[in-house]
Amino acid sequence: MDYQAFQATLSSPVMWIVSAPLVIISVSQAIMFLGMCRKEAAAIGISKEKVNSAMRSSALTALGPSLSPVIVMLSLIVSIGAPTAWMRLCDVGAARTELGVCSLMASLLGVEMNTETFGAEAFTYSLWGMALNNFGWLGMVFFFTHRMDGITAKMEEKFDSKWIKVMMNSASIGLFAYLLINQIQSLAMTKLTPAVIGAVMQLLITKGFSKNKRLQELSLGISLLCGMLITQALINAGIVA
């Protein structure tokens, strides 16, 4: 299968059909629990006005953060196709997590995303990688949520919760260190330039404009755009090669 034929498979009707069920289940589940809880709220005497204001405010709160991964979303559409991007952004795993998994899978096969080396095999690896990664959270919830009250009590007794927090942070730092190193390990300017611009912009926005909350929400998007566009401009101008 040549590259163009492979690209067509990414957004074939079949991919839309197999990607839809998870989104449908997630939305139906939300609607079902919404109905259950509204009934329960009425039964325990919470007024309709309060319930409506809770619904309105939570919907508004969700607006901003739902929009913020739009740049990564566009790049996911380009590299793994719209149906898969849609399904994976509607389920657990942030946009950057899904991109991280695809990047890991590409590195397992020694290929690179957004190039002709990323073909049907690498895409299959990515599909399995995202499914197995998400299964980690889904499986945990499926097997343990109904007996979680006992588990949390035992955990607090047994472990140093401060260290658990540090360990969790450092594990995700380690992962992103790997992902970043894997990108820049050849020390090629085409890889270093976007990394440096992205890092500097992120530092500038989060440190320099720390009081502007709107800007903080957009910071990752802005840093990405600057990194991508400036690098491409420098390449086109022949400055970075």
Binding site: S75, F176, I197, A199, Q202, C226, T231
Partner: peptide
């Protein structure tokens, strides 16, 4: 120009996220 620039998203994203995470330490 825009389509080409998407191939630079990974180094930019991972570097920006890394900066964000390591701020704590």
């Amino acid at each position: 120009f825009i389509t080409d620039s998407f191939s630079h998203i990974q180094p930019a994203l991972f570097a920006a996220v890394y900066i964000d995470m390591m701020k704590r330490d």
